[in-house]
Amino acid sequence: MPAPAIDLKASSMRPFLTLQFLGGTPASRIVVGLAIAVALTCYVMTIAWTLAMSFTSSTFLPDWDFVGIERYVDLFGSSRWSVAFANMFLFGIPFIFLALALGTFLAILIDQKVQGEAVFRTIVLYPLALSFIVVGLIWQWVLEPNFGLQTAVRAMGWETFRFDWMARSDRVIYTLVLAAVWHSSGIVMAIMLAGLRGVDGEIWKAARIDGIPTWRIYVSIILPMLRPMAMTCVTLLAISVVKSYELVVAMTDGGPGNSSDLPSRFVMQALLERANIGTGSAAAIIMMLSVLVILLPYFVIELRSRRR
């Protein structure tokens, strides 16, 4: 007797197999199904793999020998990671603060109905079109103590001028701040300028009639209204800090020594050069967690506004 053929129509698996739970039409179902498959494989499974590896003793090759949180203990016990992890804050906090302050300041200036606004905007924004590799190489050249700024200023007569932060392991991280602010303050300017343009003209009229000085109107009324834009900027910049890799590779390559190392570079080296997959994965997971922590306030606000 032939085995009974599986009746697909009657099978309870059918809606799943034909992706009918997605609605739409067969063509759109294939598109959406493919996207889900890509997202699950390349975003979710890959993270799960790295998470699993961070709990193993893997070194040169992936190895499913689970050792609990040993890798994380190793990681935070190592001085190299401590430097890289601390640098994320030493670099990130002044960078975010300065980029936000400078970008907002420039947005306010440009918002004063200036002539040639397009020129000013174009100049402030052009560094954003450059690769971080390029940004790093430019600033390495300008700040190199012997060739660059320091010697140039001395040659102009100020012979005691000192700016050798590129060569000083306790200051080098702030040269990255300088380069990153130069690159990214434009995006703050653009977002804040859009915010300023969106402010109701009536508010300005009312404040003017009351005779409040312009700077007070900005500080007490306008800027507090732009808080959501500022928060967007901070989130955007903070995520770029965690991801920041090319800049440090091109500008200092982590040096002198490893004093300007960042988690992103630490992970790349551990995984691909120092054959330490367990520790590298643990460090990568810390990077992922950092991003999630940055996004947390966003989710909280989103949830709250939905509940209302």
Partner: peptide, 26 residues
């Protein structure tokens, strides 16, 4: 008329926040 569109968009958008380092080895 894709169902669960918001959820799927969320899943895809998640990719924007992943540092490449986390997924590069696999």
């Amino acid at each position: 008329q894709t169902r669960h569109a918001g959820l799927i968009l969320g899943l895809v958008l998640f990719g924007a926040f992943i540092p490449l380092q986390v997924v590069i080895y696999p």
